[in-house]
Design a protein around this nucleic acid. Structure first.
Length: 639
RNA sequence: GCCCACGUAGCUCAGUCGGUAGAGCAUUUGCAUGGUAAGCAAAAGGUCACCAGUUCGAUUCUGGUCGUGGGCUCCA
């Protein structure tokens, strides 16, 4: 037997090490920098602790904080660190689950102590101590029965419940000083590595996410290997707060909500309505250009319609109670599709007429639990930029490609460039023939390939009535939002017995695709506000320029310029109040308008304007005509 | 719906260990005619979310209701 171990590194190079060394030791021989950054590792594809001692040749991958896997391990260890601190402070605390999440970690805890922000500070202080104690984190394996006994003795009922459902005979525990937790691992090697952390919020969470179970207290936190990274993260959270669309919406007077008149319902003020109008006009225009027709459908429909569509069966939880009209139940629409199908059925369509691309900015109402309502992002009444495509099997792939292309182009124009696609395929319970699912899924996949979009597949994650593609876009500060959705529907064409006449003179079932690009106008505007932090590009800005006078003498000239701009289709606003220029500038700048124009004695007499661009602190004077021409051209190119 | 926090002037917030309230900004008025991020002054503005209870007395304490925020489940 050799006393060497051969390790294959990610770049396929090989390296020999003495037997009996831990991976941590090995990384030290590869490079000090790597050793310092190494959090855990992967041996032949299996994640292990950095302290693991391999027995035989293997291929190695080292996890550092830069990788998602490294972050995951780091945050998971941080959650153990927090749990240990909590156990020290609150003896009755029982622990449920404490995983890492996209950014940070949480732990669900059952205790009589009500966690308050002050308690969080105490917990943080205790965590600080544990970090200073520099405790080794060690892995321990035991049989499932022993583990159940171990946690039963300690009153950890949640851990016991978890263990009872495990099927493995052996489970692992991680121990650090006086604390041990059930955990698959891997973990950091020592508590001292958690150099910077912050507990962020407290929330209620049901045991196993089920509202029938006990509500536990969840503490969220983040942690980083150095203080600078924590600072950066906290700054980002600050930035998120600053961009909050509810705050900016108020500051720019875009919209409001009125709890006394019903929550989850949006009131669009003139400026918000203007923004929305610009957006919708553009949307309509582009839809016509892309071969769509626009529809308008009613807001309510008889129960028979919703029975046929099946909504009263599978969607009734989200629908409002019916109203009685002449003895029949009418429901406010939660979706537009049944209406579009009725319109389809009022004509006899043949394969020659297809595809039909029918779009509507359709306002729908859905019941949402009060706790989930959130500004413009989560509401009870919203306008979908909905469309339904009815086509033949032969046309389906091209149609999907077209929709994708259209969608991507729209996102680009709106200033979002990073896009990812998520394909959800057939779930266990579903309607429609296997063959249709296969064709549909294949065309979705091929369409994505043609457009070269990053794809993640969620096997079995589709709705029961058909597969779908969701597009997620990344905003200016890196957050991902689900926006567009392209969804096949094998259910409604059946239920409504839709057909078209084929070349063979026979009836055939059309393919039906639902698609929303922006999703909902309300939600989209909310995201747009946060993406641009209220500094909308010129073509979208509800107010494109504020014109202000130096003294009252220039008021007539200012009004003239305003009138001229309005005639040109521009959106100016004026300020001729008897206030100081400084004051008026300040207010205008706070409105985040693209241009602030100042008209004083000089400008008024020689037909010029003093232009102050958004984001700049000085102004330039130029002929009014030149400025207006520049504005027009920028709007045209949507710069 | 559930857990926690919160609800005071149009906005942002202070305050009252129980004796019905205050600041800044905004508004109105007066003075200042001002050149690129706040000129000066005065006035006006509140059923302290709503409904009960305890109390001589509740904006403050207790309970409930409604709403908001952070989460849990689902989703656009």
């Amino acid at each position: 037997m050799s006393d060497k171990i051969t390790v294959t590194l990610p770049d396929s190079s090989k390296r020999d090490f003495e037997k009996g060394l831990s991976i941590y030791d090995m990384t030290g021989q590869i490079g000090k920098g790597l050793q310092n950054a190494a959090l855990a590792a992967e041996i032949d594809g299996t994640p292990v602790d950095i302290t693991a001692v391999p027995e035989k040749d293997f291929s190695l991958k080292v996890y550092t904080f830069d990788s998602p896997a490294g972050k995951d391990i780091f945050w998971h260890s941080a959650s153990h660190l927090m749990a240990q601190a909590i156990k020290r402070l609150y003896k009755d605390a029982k622990f449920a689950i404490g995983p890492s999440i996209e950014t940070g970690f949480y732990y669900d805890i059952d205790t009589d102590t009500v966690f308050t922000p002050e308690e969080l500070e105490k917990i943080e202080a205790e965590m600080e101590k544990i970090v200073e104690e520099s405790l080794d984190i060690t892995r321990e394996e035991m049989s499932r029965e022993d583990a159940i006994r171990y946690f039963s003795e300690r009153g950890e009922i949640y851990k016991v419940e978890l263990l009872q459902e495990f099927t493995d005979d052996t489970v692992s525990l991680y121990r650090q000083g006086d604390f041990a937790d059930l955990c698959r691992g891997p973990h950091l090697k020592n508590t001292s590595l958690v150099k910077a952390f912050k507990l962020l919020s407290i929330a209620g969470a049901y045991w196993r996410g089920n509202e029938k179970n006990k509500m536990l207290q969840r503490i969220y936190g983040v942690a980083f290997p150095d203080k600078k990274l924590l600072k950066k993260h906290l700054d980002l959270l600050e930035e998120v707060k600053k961009r909050d669309h509810r705050k900016i919406g108020k500051e720019l007077d875009l919209f409001s909500t009125h709890d006394d008149a019903g929550s989850g319902l949006i009131y669009w003020h003139p400026k918000g309505a203007r923004l929305r109008t610009v957006l919708e006009e553009w949307w309509r225009h582009e839809h016509f250009k892309n071969g769509y027709e626009l529809l308008y459908s009613p807001h309510i429909g008889k129960s028979t319609l919703w029975e046929t569509s099946g909504h009263l069966g599978f969607y009734s939880d989200n629908m409002y109670s019916p109203m009685d009209i002449d003895g029949s139940d009418y429901y406010v629409k939660p979706m537009n599709c049944p209406f579009h199908i009725k319109m389809y059925q009022s004509n006899m369509y043949s394969y020659r007429d297809l595809p039909l691309r029918w779009a509507e900015l359709g306002t729908v109402y859905r019941y949402e639990k009060s706790g989930v309502l959130h500004g413009l992002l989560r509401v009870r009444g919203f306008t979908q930029d909905d469309a339904h495509i009815f086509c033949t099997p032969e046309q389906i792939e091209d149609e999907i490609v077209e929709v994708l292309r259209f969608s991507l182009w729209m996102w680009k124009t709106l200033g979002f460039t990073e896009i990812k696609a998520y394909l959800a395929t057939k779930p266990e319970k579903s309607v429609g023939e296997q063959e249709r699912w296969d064709t549909a899924q294949e065309s979705l996949k091929r369409a994505l390939e043609k457009e070269n979009i990053d794809l993640e597949v969620d096997e079995g994650g589709g709705a029961f009535y058909g597969p779908k593609i969701d597009l997620k876009v990344r905003d200016a500060i890196g957050r991902e939002w689900q926006m567009s959705t392209i969804q096949f529907d094998f259910n409604l064409p059946e239920r409504f017995d839709m057909f078209y006449i084929g070349e063979d003179g026979q009836k055939h079932r059309p393919y039906m695709v639902h698609r929303a690009l922006l999703g909902s106008i309300e939600r989209f505007v909310g995201i747009l506000i946060e993406h641009y932090a209220g500094r909308f590009p010129l073509w979208l800005s509800p107010v494109q320029a504020i014109i202000l006078s130096v003294s009252e003498e220039q008021a007539p000239v200012v009004r003239e310029i305003k009138a001229r701009m309005i005639q040109m289709g521009l959106r100016p606003q004026i300020d001729v109040r008897k206030e100081s220029v400084g004051y008026k500038i300040r207010e205008a700048v706070k409105q985040r308008v693209p241009y602030v124009l100042v008209i004083g004695k000089n400008e008024a007499s020689d037909g010029t304007v003093s232009v102050r661009k958004r984001g700049e602190n000085d102004s330039i004077t130029m002929p009014l005509d030149d400025f207006l021409a520049e504005m027009e051209s920028k709007i045209k190119t949507k710069e």
